[in-house]
Amino acid sequence: MSTVVEINNVGREFRKYYQSTFKEFLTDRHAKKFNKVFWALRNISFNVESGSTVGLIGRNGSGKSTLLKIISGVLTPSEGFVTRPVATAALLELGAGFQPDMTGRENIFLNSAILGRTKKQTQSQLDSIIDFSGIEEFIDTPVKFYSSGMYARLGFAIAIHTDPELLLVDEVLAVGDEPFQSKCFSKIKQMQSEGCSIVLVTHSAQNVRDFCDSAVLLDHGTLYSIGEVDEVLENYQKLP
């Protein structure tokens, strides 16, 4: 099996205090508090094999979402490198970049373009996207009138229709109702069977068992445990 994502000694630091004006930058540059940093992630290295699904687990603040953002490219690592496919769909926040005044249909084209799709590609999948979202009736309504559920449905439908090699899923699926969630999960299963690699952030042990081939446990920004799903889940339980 080949490697689809390579995470090589990745770390990310954040400053605790922050200058936001020239004045502070010039006068307080050497003030001690601005030098205080903390590492949200440190020394993270692992690979995702092509076609496999990795579950990313850990407590709140363990760095799961930070790591997922770094893989997506939204956050830049402070150290280390990440190599990933260009064709990556990140379900970090559904419908990011929707233009409120534009209709659902117009937003499909805009959002797909942001995710790297051409107009032609989007056109050919338009019906499928609208069908999956289940909001045909309101597709020509400006999205500012959408409910948060409709927003998420459309965002999800667009993201999974970008033909990704790698899918990054944060806990966004919690927004939809039960039927939509199960629709999303069966779509994810289908994408798995088509060879799409997935990194899944979740708090649910059940999701990890259902979807993942392996799991990664993060604790306080470090890699605590990696390997078989059951083994890592057991370590998660034993976490002090």
């Binding site: 099996m1 080949s2 689809v4 092509s50 076609g51 770094i70 893989i71 490219g73 830049t76 690592p77 490198f81 990440v82 190599t83 990933r84 496919p85 260009v86 064709a87 090699e165 088509e194 060879g195 799409c196 690699s197």
Partner: peptide
């Protein structure tokens, strides 16, 4: 995996 590997990006 049935998919072929496409272009990659290094962050």
């Amino acid at each position: 995996p049935i998919r072929k590997i496409g272009p990659t990006v290094t962050l």
